[in-house]
């Protein structure tokens, strides 16, 4: 039981890295990223492939973050040129296209058959001990780091300006400051978190396949962020915990309900995420805890 909880906690921590990132992008800056899972996939495959090429994890994990950041950069520039609704759609398509590339380029990614046998965190880093515990410690360290970075960023003059941009971009311009530079910086920096999260995921699950990177994952993260309250760093953590509680709880429930198949349970998860997106928008856009921003 304890090891099960620990395993769930690792995934929750990996997800909260993404929630923290999305929170910086949307919660604090108002940037809509519907392509979170694309950057996650880039991080995961980068780290997995580099480690299979013989690089140590101490290098591949930072590379995962960098690759996602690099992929985020042109996208961020694009966000400056497009109306917000257009950008949202482009991001959806961007993530789907990345998944398409992963499933198509078999020589590199193993295609739909997947990429098995990825070095686990404990083996790859040469840390002895229970692999789950090692993963937990590492993920926890990354999340703590990301929280510290987020807090420092948000409570700085830079953070003040991104919140001003979220509130009213034209008023920012009237002060003689271009919103663009800030938006690009936030987008790229937070995608570093997402890439790192993908790297950790690859070496924790040790197997990657394109169907792990569907659009649904992006909206898991959105729901986690909105639940915790957009524009609150602590809320991102709470939101991820609630979300993982639900996802894993549904697996648990499935063990208890013999009549429901695993496939049906996945429909239930999809349905509950869809329903919560509708209900949150309708009744509680500020989230359960009430962040500063909300999506109203």
């Amino acid at each position: 039981m304890l090891s099960y909880l620990l395993a769930v906690a690792v995934v929750a921590l990996i997800y909260s890295l993404m929630t923290l990132a999305l929170n910086l992008q949307f919660g604090f800056t108002g940037l809509i990223n519907f392509g979170v899972v694309g950057f996650f996939a880039i991080g995961a495959y980068t780290s997995a492939l580099l480690s299979q090429a013989g690089l140590p994890l101490e290098l591949t994990l930072p590379c995962a973050a960098l690759a996602a950041g690099l992929a985020a950069w042109p996208v961020a520039l694009l966000s400056l040129r497009l109306r917000i609704e257009y950008f949202a759609i482009v991001m959806l398509g961007y993530a789907e296209t990345i998944r398409l590339v992963i499933s198509q380029e078999e020589w590199l990614t193993g295609g739909v058959r997947g990429l098995p046998g990825i070095a686990s965190l404990s083996v790859g880093l040469g840390i002895p001990g229970d692999p789950t515990l090692v993963a937990f410690a590492l993920a926890l360290a990354c999340v703590v780091g990301a929280v510290l970075v987020s807090r420092r960023l948000v409570h700085s003059p830079f953070g003040r300006m991104i919140q001003a941009i979220r509130d009213d971009e034209d008023a920012v311009r009237a002060l003689g400051k271009s919103p663009g530079r800030f938006k690009v910086a936030v987008f790229v920096v937070s995608c570093l978190f997402v890439g790192l999260s993908g790297g950790l995921y690859a070496h924790y699950i040790t197997y990657l396949a394109p169907d792990q990177f569907g659009a649904l994952l992006t909206f898991y993260i959105w729901v986690a962020m909105i639940l915790g309250g957009a524009g609150s760093v602590g809320g991102a953590l709470v939101g991820s915990a609630i979300l993982l509680g639900f996802i894993e709880g549904s697996r648990f429930l499935h063990d208890l309900l013999p009549g429901v198949s695993a496939v049906e349970m996945s429909s239930v998860r999809l349905g509950v995420i869809g329903l919560s997106m509708m209900l949150l928008m309708r009744f509680r856009p500020q989230g359960l805890l009430g962040g500063k921003a909300g999506c109203g």
């Binding site: 003059p157 001003a164 509130d167 920012v172 002060l175 524009g231």
Partner: peptide
């Protein structure tokens, strides 16, 4: 800037901030 305090609204307006 509705979510910032009045003071923060003014501080955000200061030109040429290194902290940005």
């Amino acid at each position: 800037f509705g979510s910032l305090t009045v003071r923060e609204n003014l501080m955000a307006a200061a030109p040429g901030q290194a902290g940005e």
